[in-house]
């Protein structure tokens, strides 16, 4: 029911969106909306739409926040997670979801990413990871594979790329997962798990930017780029049934890490109660 979804969850008076034909951003935006809708309808969760806050930074992908009919804030380049930290810490009852690009969250915003993960701040971060700076016209990002070309890497990038989910997990994120534009159902489920997870969660969704990354690196059009995801990214059940040989060069689409650690705003709440009890007892 895509059209009903659009009427219910998108600000249709602000459509059409600014994205290029074949861009992966619209698919990921829809995945997030479907995940929210399913959690609203889930009697166990009953997610309250009015309590959902969508926070984004700057980039093609970050424009998604404005199209989505929720409390939404489109912030400054790299700072989405820091704004989101303020919102969540101020009002922990809010369900804060960050939509961010690979450059936005792992280059200019890398410091905020690792520290929010370290604190286990109860945010859900969805990265629109297209291996390139789309908005500024195709410069290399921290996830551009080494050797690949970009307008600022005309001879191929020398940088070793980040795996954003691994980076977040290393910094203390308690839920990390990988999704893709091709694997719609799996990605929706991962985003739902991320939202339900108490603590910092990050779903690194592999996107496609045919306009810059695809064209610069002869990856074909959107169809060829999605075919690459289909052939090289493998959902959980199938992935774990594969032999080590079969797994070589393939990427898991699914949960990468999942652990338990006290969530920051809960812990702060306890601290306040302790301090106030001590004061009352004095």
């Amino acid at each position: 029911m895509p059209s009903e979804l659009i009427h219910e969850f998108m600000r249709i008076d602000h459509l059409p969106h600014i994205w290029c034909p074949g861009c992966g951003n619209g698919v990921i935006m829809r995945d997030v909306a479907v995940a929210i809708q399913e959690l609203m309808d889930d009697p166990e969760v009953k997610l309250n739409r009015e309590k959902v806050v969508i926070v984004s930074g700057i980039g093609c992908s970050s424009r998604a926040a404005g199209y989505m009919d929720f409390n939404s804030i489109h912030t400054t380049h790299g700072r989405a997670i820091a704004f989101a930290t303020g919102i969540k810490f101020a009002k922990p009852e809010l369900e804060v979801i960050v939509l961010t690009g690979d450059g936005d969250c792992s280059a200019i915003g890398g410091n905020h990413l690792i520290h929010a993960a370290r604190r286990n701040m109860g945010l859900t971060v969805v990265t629109f990871n297209n291996d390139i700076y789309g908005m500024t016209g195709g410069q290399y990002s921290p996830t551009t594979p080494a050797g690949d070309k970009a307008t600022t890497a005309p001879y191929g990038s020398l940088d070793r790329p980040f795996d954003i989910a691994q980076l977040a997990a290393g910094a203390g994120a308690t839920f990390t997962a990988r999704g893709s534009v091709y694997h719609v159902r799996e990605t929706i489920d991962l985003i739902k798990q991320g939202i339900r997870h108490k603590g910092f969660s990050l779903i690194d969704v592999y996107s496609v930017c045919p306009t810059y990354y695809g064209r610069k690196n002869h990856k074909g059009g959107p169809v060829e780029m999605l075919r690459w995801q289909k052939e090289n990214m493998v959902p959980t059940a199938r992935y774990y049934a594969m032999s080590e040989e079969q797994k070589a060069g393939k990427l898991l689409v699914g949960t990468l890490t999942h652990s338990e650690y006290p969530e920051y705003t809960d812990e702060y709440d306890k601290l306040v109660k302790r301090v106030q009890a001590e004061m009352a007892g004095r």
């Binding site: 400054t76 919102i87 810490f89 809010l94 410091n111």
Partner: peptide, 18 residues
């Protein structure tokens, strides 16, 4: 926060939250 950029961002976020 981890730096002043983050501090300023968090303050704005908190104010938007009321």
């Amino acid at each position: 926060m981890e730096d002043e950029l983050a501090s300023m961002a968090a303050v704005l976020g908190a104010s938007a939250a009321g």
